[in-house]
């Protein structure tokens, strides 16, 4: 799982390195922007924002959403949502949730999200160690599954931080 996430993350790195290509694509649709909403159960991060592109950590890999994307429902895994707007990149770590690409707008409904800069690297490292210990100590399937979720989330956070 970690390897998968890491490969996804490195894929993400390559993608951002090839910025020139993307810029061309963005220019092609410069006339219109992506109508973007980012919702949490306890609040709203962005509402009716006009952005250039959004990268979401879909369960099958990082998905880039540009204006006029085909309608899609994507389940999110722990990872980074990147919002590109006017040359600035806002990065948020999300735990899970769904992204809905509608014809006229894109909604990201996450269970929990935090700006990537708010994550504490040492706390994340500690979390990975704890999750690994819990994984080793888990006996039943239920415990194993719970530990796996914790481990996945923490490793995703760690790789997100090393990427940043």
């Amino acid at each position: 799982m970690f390897r998968q996430a890491a490969s996804r993350a490195s894929a993400l790195a390559r993608q951002s390195a090839a910025g020139g290509q993307r810029r061309q694509m963005a220019e092609a649709v410069a006339a219109d922007k992506l109508h973007f909403n980012f919702f949490l159960p306890g609040g709203t991060i962005q509402k009716d924002a006009a952005v250039d592109m959004v990268l979401v950590p879909a369960s099958s890999g990082v998905m880039g959403i540009l204006p006029r994307h085909a309608p899609t429902v994507a389940q999110l895994r722990p990872g980074v949502v990147e919002v590109h707007s006017e040359g600035t990149k806002d990065k948020y770590f999300v735990s899970s949730g769904f992204a809905f690409v509608h014809k006229d707008r894109t909604d990201v409904c996450a269970v929990a999200a935090a700006p990537l800069s708010d994550l504490d690297a040492s706390a994340v490292a500690q979390g990975v160690t704890d999750a690994e210990a819990a994984m080793a100590a888990a006996k039943t399937d239920m415990e194993k599954a719970e530990a796996q979720i914790g481990l996945d989330t923490y490793t995703a956070m760690r790789s997100a931080l090393t990427m940043a």
Partner: peptide
């Protein structure tokens, strides 16, 4: 939901 693609592994 036919018009929507479902992205999942």
């Amino acid at each position: 939901f036919d018009e929507y693609e479902f992205d999942s592994d």
